[in-house]
Design a protein around this nucleic acid. Sequence first.
DNA 1: CCAAAAGTGTTATGCTTACACCCATGT
DNA 2: ACATGGGTGTAAGCATAACACTTTTGG
Lengths: 229, 229
Amino acid sequence: MRPDPGAAHAVLAAVLQVRNEQLEALLWQRAREPFAASWALPGGALAEGETLEGSLRRHLAEKVHVRELSHLEQLETRSDPHRNPARRELATGYLGLVPSGLDPKLPDDTHWHPIDELPELAYDHEEILIGARERLRAKLSYTNLGFALAPPSFTLAELRDLYAAALGHPVSATNLQRVLLRRQLLEETGERRRYGSGGGRPAAIYRFRTGELEITDPFAVLRPPTMAH
Amino acid sequence: MRPDPGAAHAVLAAVLQVRNEQLEALLWQRAREPFAASWALPGGALAEGETLEGSLRRHLAEKVHVRELSHLEQLETRSDPHRNPARRELATGYLGLVPSGLDPKLPDDTHWHPIDELPELAYDHEEILIGARERLRAKLSYTNLGFALAPPSFTLAELRDLYAAALGHPVSATNLQRVLLRRQLLEETGERRRYGSGGGRPAAIYRFRTGELEITDPFAVLRPPTMAH
DNA sequence: CCAAAAGTGTTATGCTTACACCCATGT
DNA sequence: ACATGGGTGTAAGCATAACACTTTTGG
């Protein structure tokens, strides 16, 4: 076996945002074969001297004008020799998150798609996308990753809707508040929300204490013994 | 920027086993520059037409004669342009596990090293190795990955020692038993252990119910609501 | 005064740890 | 008999879910 001298390497991002009360992914429609008219994850070829993450940020900025990522994290590197029918190509997937409320300007061939109603996707992109969704769901449970889905400040009802959209199941604002406050992920801004129409008590406005990923629930079980004697 | 036509790609494995009551890693000592006399993770160059995992299994079989992996799982792909001072090279890390009790024949330049007393490691291999250890520790808590560390059957005291070595902190056999039995990871073989010297009640012998990875504790929090009405 | 939405109090439940105690065997 | 480890019983602590109830606002 000879070392493979010409293994092309691509980077691909599952860019996710909560829009219209649901989780949506950024996809662009291919014009040319292979997979003409199918939809694809944004990304492109790794260039000389680039890191994978640097390359992905460049492609997202150049091709889909997305620069406002609140989180970017590497997923699996796929290597099936036939994943690209045209030529041997490895691809490293990434999970990218955009805070709710932003609406980056997109090229004409690029659109947001609800992740529960995906069109036909090119290559192995659907697997990468579903893997990204599962990674997001898992990390919402044991880290502070919610900060990457949320705008800078929000009411608990708004945050509840974001979590419900990302997790795909109903979430109780009451219990969400207790979990996130006890873990000290949230802090009050002191402000209260002006309400649009209709009555109701004004809601306290919160923000995430930090915009850096932290693991907040490190050991589900089999924790180290407590040092209490 | 031009696509990088010659990005070499390597695969590297952190092969871990519990030996001598501690977690140990398989390393080989480099004879040549760069990093002569430093220790390195086993692995090698990706060849034409190979998958990453296939390539790694080939290298492990050829170079360190290890074929008895009970688990193999992809970790991060590293892409710093300077991680290899000689030439641009991407590397994908893997976590490989060998059941306790096996003792594969190794080439002369290859040895097991306690992961808490590592020698000088080449390239970025120490980071990959520590990342592998952390992945193992996390998955022991919420999956049945213990099966990959354990021999085909064992007493609870033996299993407790394996978990303690892998986690790096004391583990109570009593509580380990309750957790693993409630989650139905273990089943009794019906046999009891012959004891060597000294007294003591003979221990029941257990085995893992399955040798496939299963997630046994899926949601630490924020679970879907129960359907009970 | 009433509707609506936010927020708090309270209870129930389940999982884990800690530790006391009982069991089975060799010497 | 006693030492030695294996195994079970039981209570306490903690986190979460579920839901009733109170608070604050607009109409």
